[in-house]
């Protein structure tokens, strides 16, 4: 099973006004970030219903990232505060059911923080690579390893 090194799939929901711009900046600055990230541009971090993040995990992603503007910098004034509440809800639900809450990440990355974007993506990919495949995707399937 472990002949090939495990490469995680990470779905990123990135705010149009900041984190997506930071991704562009990282690209134009020739900063390397791993190809494991599958970015999805959304108009605001608060447009992402956490169910979509759960759904990404269910459909085979090993982790998800929600990238928004720093608190106070939201293009729509208060979107990121609402996103933070939603992430708090989804992380609490995952934790209390006994799932790994670290597979959902919330990061504030502004449009000028290209280097931070590259660093966070590298660190998170490495972190998930060390953790191994997510077992959430096997929910309601016949596969996966029996745990405990």
């Amino acid at each position: 099973m472990s002949e090939k090194k495990f490469e995680p799939v990470i779905v990123g929901f990135f705010c149009n006004w900041c984190t997506s711009a930071a991704a562009d900046l990282a690209g134009t600055s020739r900063l390397h970030y791993p190809p494991n990230i599958r970015p999805i541009r959304v108009m605001c971090s608060s447009t992402v219903d956490p169910v979509y993040m759960i759904r990404a995990l269910q459909e085979g992603a090993d982790a998800t990232i929600l990238g928004g503007c720093h608190p106070g910098d939201c293009h729509y004034i208060t979107g990121n505060y609402k996103a933070r509440r939603r992430i708090a809800i989804v992380k609490t639900v995952l934790r209390s059911l006994g799932f790994d809450e670290d597979r959902v990440l919330l990061e504030w990355i502004s449009g000028s923080e290209g280097p931070k974007f590259a660093r966070v993506m590298n660190e998170y990919t490495e972190y998930i690579r060390n953790k191994g495949p997510s077992d959430f995707k096997y929910l309601d399937s016949l596969g996966g390893e029996e745990i405990e």
């Binding site: 219903d49 956490p50 169910v51 759960i54 759904r55 269910q58 459909e59 085979g60 939603r86 809800i89 989804v90 639900v93 059911l97 995707k137 096997y138 929910l139 309601d140 399937s141 016949l142 596969g143 996966g144």
Partner: peptide, 28 residues
């Protein structure tokens, strides 16, 4: 594809997702 990736899936799909999703929406 799911059945390939997950070594077989249970049908109907999205059963657990429904309950987790509902928790996220109304749990608070």
């Amino acid at each position: 594809n799911w059945a390939d990736d997950k070594d077989g899936i249970r049908l109907p799909t999205d059963k657990a997702l429904f309950h987790i999703g509902r928790l996220i929406h109304m749990g608070t």
